[in-house]
Design a protein around this nucleic acid. Structure first.
Lengths: 224, 224
DNA sequence: GTCAATCTTGACGGTTTCTTGACGGTGCGG
DNA sequence: CCGCACCGTCAAGAAACCGTCAAGATTGAC
């Protein structure tokens, strides 16, 4: 079962959380402060972290950052209502969810389930290999000639949609909708620009596409 | 039919939405505030959520997050024009689309349809195989001798109509109407030109059609 | 604040696709 | 045999579409 690291300086809350989480079958690791938490996390990598923002030794945000540095485990932040500012910073730092104190145990447990479920899709993401490059959807990496290809967020997003529909024609509407949002359905200029950029980075000969094919008037198709 | 959860504190708008959505055959659940909405959503998981950003008890963004925690149902956000900031945050939180108040009912209904269509699992489109070529309707692809056959949008559209009516005679009127629109019902020149192009690309011997048969004075018939 | 990276936007030329009309072939009925 | 209706063929001009480039605008890092 999943291992959950709980970081809080309130001993009473810590005990309550431990009891409830263990009752749900989770493996629980406790830490009263940030330093202990980071140490514990490196020894026993957790699948999820619950961290209070008001810690004695360091800001909870630092804990979030410290964990995000090497783990993709979801982080749920606990905070008192008056710490709006920290809350925002924590989310920016990579927290996945936050719960305002005081909170009901059921609510927290629900959020834990949700966060784990969201993270769970550890379903083997496909790796697409061509003669020229390799795309690892799970790792968000593209390797060509042994070196990482640098893609901007938008380039990656576009490539991802095309690759997930490998072999299938993806209409311009659908691409714009998935990458730029529902309100850009007719702005085909974006597509032209970004497809060109992807080709420049991936195709052996960008002027004669081998993987990113254009179907005039319809859309684009990725072929491995 | 799809169940739609509508969250808004404007009773008049709520009523208008209910009437219009029900009229379209949707199952509607209403909630005047965030807490009620989340409770209702957990009892009756909706297929789509329409939520106003200006709620009395909590920020609409929180509602979006709350729903996103355990559901993948599309979320459409309603917002007043001056709340640009919240709108962005709502989309970041996982909203699928937003509509600015005041809005026309038709626009909202259209976006509801679009969101539901997008969320709908892709139906398994049939693959038609002949001795000469293979037509994959879902992938929008025709393969012949191991190579992709390039079809223009109009060619594809015409072929699609014929294949979906495989074995049946399709009248010229119907073909013109479906491919070129209702105003071209008598322009049979298009048909002659495009049927010829399809035959050139698909038939082993275009002068002796094996798949795309002409029924003089009536229409065309695709036979696999 | 500055700086770099990324995104957005518009214009241009080349290419693909669509439209249109004319011509010839075929089959049927007179 | 001849005329007519219908279909197949072809090609050229028009229209739509795409690739390309570069200059602002925006964003985020420092």
């Amino acid at each position: 079962m999943s291992r959950i690291l709980v970081v809080d300086d309130d001993r009473q809350l810590l005990r309550a959380l431990r009891i409830n989480l263990i009752a749900r079958g989770y493996d629980v690791v406790l830490a009263p402060d940030g330093a202990t938490a980071l140490a514990a996390a490196s020894r026993q990598p957790p699948d999820l972290v619950v961290v209070d923002l008001g810690l004695p030794d360091m800001d909870g945000v630092e804990v979030v950052q410290g964990i995000r540095g090497w783990s993709t485990a979801p982080v749920i932040v606990l905070s008192a209502r008056h710490l709006e500012q920290s809350k925002v910073r924590a989310l920016d730092a990579g927290a996945d969810d936050y719960v305002t104190k005081p909170f009901g145990m059921d609510e927290l447990l629900a959020r834990v389930r949700a966060a784990l479920r969201r993270a769970a899709p550890a379903v083997q993401e496909p790796v697409v290999e061509t003669e020229t490059f390799t795309i690892d959807l799970g790792a968000r990496r593209v390797v060509r000639d042994g070196a990482d290809v640098r893609l901007t967020p938008t380039e990656w997003h576009l490539l991802e949609v095309l690759v997930r529909n490998s072999g299938r024609l993806v209409s311009q509407r659908q691409l714009l909708q998935e990458v730029w949002g529902p309100r850009y359905e007719s702005e085909t200029n974006y597509l032209r620009v970004y497809v060109a950029q992807l080709r420049a980075k991936l195709e052996p000969d960008p002027s004669r596409p081998r993987y990113l094919h254009t179907e005039p008037g319809m859309g684009y198709r990725f072929t491995s």
